[in-house]
């Protein structure tokens, strides 16, 4: 019997895994699934600052995300996981299945940003980026997909980027990783299509998070301004987009992720969905 005062929500009873959920887009996704009825949202984050990247999530923020998810009525397990370590990722996924019985949705969101010209980029930065932003997605998929295959259903959404759709100067490692995510997602979509599991990517442009608002990102987009302010950034970022906004909100990306993971998107797979205020209109496909 449907209860008109409590209409069914899109993820009632679902078990959802989100990587990189201490803050930013990952937190927004975790909360989005909880709001939409998920029974359990299982989150992880490195929860440690890397020297190369802008401000990263902390253990306190990971716990804060968990508390916010629980306020929405979902069970939340929060674990410190390094997505570069496939054994850690596998143990995280297996424990989610052990505790909650199955997995419905995997959101591969964990990622970092750093910037350097291709000829100055420290090799350690290259490896760190490829291992986290691309390898991390692969390791999470390798850990979770066997559970989805056994269940014969499931949804995977990975975070790519507008930088997965074109070349981006001073981001050779980031662009490589984000393009790679799309190749990985399309291949997995072909493998898992026959059993009804969908695999998609979202490609956001600048999102209003720490990854956007920091000196390194501002310098990338405004090399000619000595000490760019948020107002300078707003002007510089707005001209990139067809729509009259400098950046989008994490909630805008979450809506795309929720849709791709929802029953309404049952026949959408292998897609790289631009959530980009029209920047994507510049891309050939």
């Amino acid at each position: 019997m449907s209860d008109p005062t409590h209409p069914p929500r899109r993820f009632d009873g679902a078990v959802v895994l989100v990587t990189g959920a201490a803050k930013g887009q990952g937190r927004s996704h975790a909360l989005g699934f909880a709001r939409e009825g998920a029974a359990a949202v299982v989150i992880c984050d490195l929860a440690e600052q890397l020297d190369t990247a802008g401000r990263m999530g902390t253990r306190e923020e990971l716990e804060e995300t968990a508390a916010l998810v629980r306020e929405q009525g979902a069970v939340c397990d929060a674990t410190v996981v390094d997505v570069r370590d496939d054994a850690q990722v596998k143990s995280w996924a297996d424990s989610a299945v052990h505790r909650h019985g199955h997995i419905d949705v995997l959101v591969c969101n964990a990622g970092i940003a750093s910037y350097a010209p291709y000829d100055e980029l420290p090799l350690s930065w290259w490896h760190e980026m490829i291992d986290i932003n691309l390898g991390g997605v692969a390791h999470a998929m390798r850990a979770v997909v066997p559970h989805l295959v056994r269940a014969g259903r499931g949804r995977v959404v990975a975070t790519s980027s507008a930088a997965g759709r074109e070349g981006v100067p001073n981001c050779v490692h980031y662009a490589a990783a984000k393009w790679g995510v799309i190749g990985l997602v399309k291949s997995a979509a072909l493998e898992l299509g026959p059993i009804g599991i969908t695999v998609n990517a979202v490609c956001p442009m600048s999102v209003d998070t720490d990854m956007c608002h920091n000196d390194a990102t501002y310098k990338l987009f405004m090399p000619d301004i000595a000490e760019p302010t948020r107002e300078d950034a707003a002007k510089a970022f707005t001209v990139l987009n067809a729509m009259d906004v400098p950046w989008i909100d994490p909630a805008d990306v979450t809506e795309a992720v929720l849709f791709l993971a929802s029953p309404a998107a049952r026949y959408i797979t292998g897609v790289a969905l631009d959530v980009a205020a029209g920047w994507n209109a510049l891309h050939s496909a």
Partner: peptide, 14 residues
Amino acid sequence: AAASWALIGMAKTV
């Protein structure tokens, strides 16, 4: 595919 797509992203950036 991941490596090949990434190679294109890298090449376009360079």
